[in-house]
Design a protein around this nucleic acid. Structure first.
Lengths: 242, 242
DNA sequence: TGTACATCAGTGAACGCGCGTTCACTGATGTAC
DNA sequence: TGTACATCAGTGAACGCGCGTTCACTGATGTAC
């Protein structure tokens, strides 16, 4: 529907939009979310300031587009990683997915930071953010779907079960990634608990690494991630080689 | 040394400094790090803008002071929590320390965010940041000092051991909180590995909670933290009731 | 206890800056007949 | 294939704003004798 009947003008338009976004990302790369200034972007592209208003309604609109892209990009990276290891053991798949997420975040820290939390005072995230966040988390669901949670994970599973019963859309989302769990609250809750815990752990390790917080702490992202993955796999009784 | 011979003038000075910091924090509370504006702070206090330059050299100086305070405050909260449970089991102590950290972060999210990562484009953290960060992490060290790390934690322990050998100050820092581990690389490495993993996990759970990232994800900070603590305690073979 | 002086908090005017955004416009490019 | 018109990219001038920071000053408060 978005791709219908693009004349040359529309194509050019899309291209310029992309160039603006690229220039914006380059600014974010050195300077954080506050460093995004339309005036400066325009200058970098050899345009006058007002020209950008042909392509984005305003600053927030551009920022929203960047955030949307970042989510989509992360989701693609993780989705592709998941596709290549579909037949491996859950343990191995967890390793690969977590590694893919970290690799994406490390390679483009400013985009990772865009996804994380509210980037700006006054900025309100667009409605479809939740949907996109779910697309990032989705591939983790099938990894844990067949797990048998131990004592540590039990309370999380209970929590997720009651959440599944309270909110309708969640079950459908889980079933999208774990077709076998459709209608099965218990199985869905296990998958959810694992995915959420994986996400939290990942954010912990990757977030600290990206922020450079561990610079003077003898930190090594890869080692930490491996240890976390092992713990989580244990907690959910995932099968596969250590 | 800082407290010597304070005349009434110096006391008043300290008080005004504190008031400025309070007003600054109030601004951060609604608006993020970018929302800190000297002009606005002055107005909030019924002062003219330039008056603030009597108390802080410039904007960055004020920001640094706030960050320093936040670290110290967090360290105090965790240190006090640790003091009240000195005799309990390691498992229980981990729970209490993690809970204290979360409670502090949740109660003052803007200060937590100040501690987390680089808050601003162009802002350079002061030199003593590392020292202060270590004061926050320190109380976690003795919790893990007597642990017997399992397979998942082993590689982290190795990493920390080589770090201890590479950098001189680290061992002294560990020994400060775990006197028995002085000179013992293995014991120090175990304590360090546990503390670092705890910090990463905490940041994951608390960071997502503070950023409101889990709003539409059925998240419950307390349940997640409990599950994480259990996993970590297992991985380090900590004794105590589940 | 009283006076002379130094210190220091705070003011108001002013600076230059970069920002988001609007407006009326010009000129090129595509479209309809 | 050629012409008339509509569309749209981009410009330059201008707006008001809030910001950090400087400067020369005034007046109150503390200190030394």
């Amino acid at each position: 529907m978005t791709e219908t009947q693009q004349g040359p003008r529309a194509r050019y338009r899309e291209q310029t939009r992309a160039e603006i976004k690229e220039a914006a990302l380059r600014q974010l790369a050195d300077g954080g979310a506050g460093a995004l200034a339309l005036t400066r972007i325009a200058k970098a592209l050899g345009l006058s300031g007002p020209a950008l208003y042909r392509y984005f309604a305003n600053r927030d609109d551009l920022l929203s587009a960047l955030i949307r892209d970042a989510y989509d990009d992360a989701a693609t990276a993780i989705g592709e990683a998941a596709a290549t290891v579909r037949d491996r053991s859950p343990r191995e798949r967890l390793r690969v997915l977590a590694g893919a997420y970290r690799a994406w975040a490390i390679s483009e820290p400013h985009r990772y930071l865009l996804i994380q939390g509210s980037p700006e005072p006054g900025y309100v995230a667009p409605d479809d953010t939740l949907e996109r966040a779910r697309a990032v988390l989705g591939p983790f669901l099938p990894v844990f779907a067949g797990g048998s949670p131990g004592a540590d994970a039990a309370s999380m599973v209970d929590r997720m079960a009651s959440w599944l019963e309270a909110e309708a859309g969640v079950g459908a989302w889980v079933a999208e990634y774990v077709p076998g769990a459709a209608g099965d609250v218990r199985a869905s809750a296990v998958a959810l608990a694992g995915a959420v815990m994986a996400w939290a752990q990942l954010h912990g390790a990757v977030g600290l690494e990206v922020a450079g917080q561990f610079a003077g702490m003898g930190h090594d992202g890869e080692t930490l991630l491996a240890a976390q993955n092992g713990m989580l796999a244990d907690a959910f009784g995932l099968s596969g080689e250590r």
